[in-house]
Amino acid sequence: MDPHRDRDPPIIRIRDLTTRFGAQVIHENLDLDIRAREVIGIVGGSGTGKSVLLREIVGLMRPASGRIEVFGQDTAALDDAGWRALQRRWGLLFQDGALFSSLTVAQNVEVPLKEHSNLSHALRRDLVGIKLALAGLPPEAANKYPSELSGGMRKRAGLARALALDPEILFLDEPTAGLDPIGASRFDDLIGQLQRALGLTVVMITHDLDSLYAICDRVAVLTGKRVKLGTIEALLREPDPWIQDYFNGPRGRAAANTAVRLESID
């Protein structure tokens, strides 16, 4: 791990974030710093606002108050051109891929390239092929429509689209939900590999404890309307009852044991 990294300014910086739905307060004075090139897992019980937090960072929702900075820019103060420039620097994978159902897989991946670059058609096709291969899809999948793909393939196609513009940050909303355990661990490996090869910062919402142990550098736990951020070892020392239940429950222990076993094999 890079020893200077702590001193670099964070790539995403959230201060005093408050979110309300009517009278219901979801986040209250939430602070979160995410550093460049780390893999952060966001966990929390149902209704603690994990997806809401992600949607607020990427500007699909506005918080009631607070400041969100991405790449050092205050997102609330950006004009349209600023937003477009910012959107090119991140990729987003929605839960079920959110592929455009009227386009083939290849056309789906091509959409951001068409919109945000001046590449020739031939080069765009080449790049689409590379992104599909990076996301682990066979070339035959390129001309299929999303409705003809399995859930795992749709996620991979969604990942290829998220990677289309070589983003610096990759946001993933429950990337392994709905995949079988083998598919899920392959997807984890894939994200880990891409993160190392392309130098990505990955922010992923997940319920999958195995993913947390396998690829996350630090974990952000949404609890009590705020975030507790740290490595899993550090979080295990937190007295918070939800965190204790989560990591020390039967599933948490099983995942930890698996992780230890894998490390000893390595």
């Binding site: 290849a106 096709r125 080449d126 689409v128 092929g129 590379i130 599909l132 291969a133 990076l134 070339p139 035959e140 390129a142 001309n143 090869a197 392309l198 130098g199």
Partner: peptide, 21 residues
Amino acid sequence: AATAGLIETVAKTDSPGLPAP
């Protein structure tokens, strides 16, 4: 090192190009 690594990653995908419709 970073550029070389990236070039290696992309070369490894060895995309045979998309099958044309």
